[in-house]
Each structure stands twice: as C-alpha cells, then as structure tokens.
Amino acid sequence: MSGRAKRAGFYFLTLVIVFFSLLPFLWFLDTSLKTQREVTATPPELFPSGSLHSYQSAIEQYNLLHYVKNSIIVAGATTLITLIISVFAGYALARLRIKYKGVIMGSLLLVSMFPQISIAGPVWKILQSFGWLNTYQGLILPYVTLTLPLGVWILTSFFKELPEELEKAARVDGCSHFQALFKIIVPLAAPGVFTAAILIFIYAWNEFFFALLIMTQQKYQTLPVGIALFQGQYTMPWGEIAAASTVATVPLVLLVFLFQKRIIRGLSAGAVKG
C-alpha cells in the first residue's frame, strides 16, 4: 500500500468516526430548526427552513428557561462545593500521612460505581425527613456525594504531580499546611482544579435519576427531567424536544471544543495512573 493511499484511508476512517459521532446531534439541531409540518413529514425532510418556532414554543409553552435556570443553579453549586471539599481531601491524600490510604481511595471508587438505585429509597427518605425534596439543596447534596470520588481522584493525582520541594520551602518559611495548600498548591494545580470543575459540572448538568426522584415540582426540575417528560396531548412535540435538547447540549459542546485537552487529561488521570 502506498503512503498516499494509506493516508487517504486514514482520513476516510477518521471522517467516518467524526460523522457518526456528530450525526444524532446534528439531526436534532436540524429538527429544531424545522417548522411544525416539516418535523412530522414522512419521509423526513432533510433540510429545515430555519424556523425558530420550536424554540419559541419550548420557551413559552414548556418553560424551557426555567429548566435552564435550575440546571445552572444545581450544577454550579455542586461544582463549587465538590471542588472545595475535594481540594482538602485530595491534598491530604496526596501529601499527608494517612493510614489506609488505599482503602479510602478504593471506597471512594466504590461510591462512584454502584447503581443509584441501591441508595435511592433511603436518600429520598432522608431528604423527606428534612423537608428537602423539591429544594435545590436537596438535589445538590446527593450530587456532591456522587461527584466527590471524581473530584478527589483527579485532584489527588494532580497534587501528586507537583514537586514537593516548593511546599517544603514554604513550610520552612513558616507557612502552615493550610497556607501552603492555598498559596502554593492550589494555584499550581489550577489546571487540575479547572479540569475537575469541568467534569463535575458535566456530571451534575446531565444527571437524571436523582433529579427525577427529588424534583417533582416543575419549578425546581432540571433540564434532563424537563426533556424526558416533554409530552403533548395530541402529538409528540418533537420540534420542541429537539430545541430543548439543543439548548441543553450547546454549553457542553462549547466546553468540549474549548477544553478537550483538559477533559481528556482529567478522565485519564482518574483512570490510568500508577
């Protein structure tokens, strides 16, 4: 095989991969720009006439912006809280002497793995007893728990990367552990912190199961719940579903295009290390 043919084959394969990765998303984007008639045409019409009707209707009839607001609040707060707690824990696990480090890391991993159903009933009961169903904190607290393993693992591995000497020097200069952490470690590990933030945010933005259980009031529902429960009486409002889906996805697409390197590094830091 000549080098040129090989190259062409490679580009073709890559193109196929990219095409199939994007196809469903592009199809929904396309659908969201169709008029009502085009959406339900059989056979499907490939090209939309660029109508914004679906977006308007999703906002006016289905309270789309409400869901967006709730998602921002929940995902934002989760990210912030998880990050703060993970910085402490990650620092301790990376730098300080703790017994049973392996067990701690292992049990964190375990938390990130078991199916939500094994804790759903009790979590629901706990929140009920506090009267926290249908409140933001009622969803944020479980989310923080579920994203902590991710945050701690990523930050631990990033903190370990940093040279210990800097910190020792700071300690010699009379900094406490605490000061060393915030003056030296965190700024240096900022890329890691930022990576963790992106991943946590994506997780909280996308989570559906707990949101479905805890947020039963439309006022507090997040985007995934809203999109899953979209239904009209006489037809499926596919145009509106596509519009809402696009709105839910675009921030993520932007994050991915802007920060793909960091995301890749963060995901692999959690996984392949050792």
């Binding site: 990765s21 839910a248 793909q260």
Partner: peptide
C-alpha cells in the same frame, strides 16, 4: 473534540 461530544451530551438528550 467531535469524538468527545457523544460522551458530553446528557443521556436523556
């Protein structure tokens, strides 16, 4: 980035 998009999209979507 294109390959990452399916991973980033909410499962519900």
């Amino acid at each position: 980035a294109a390959v990452l998009i399916p991973w980033a999209i909410p499962t519900v979507v």
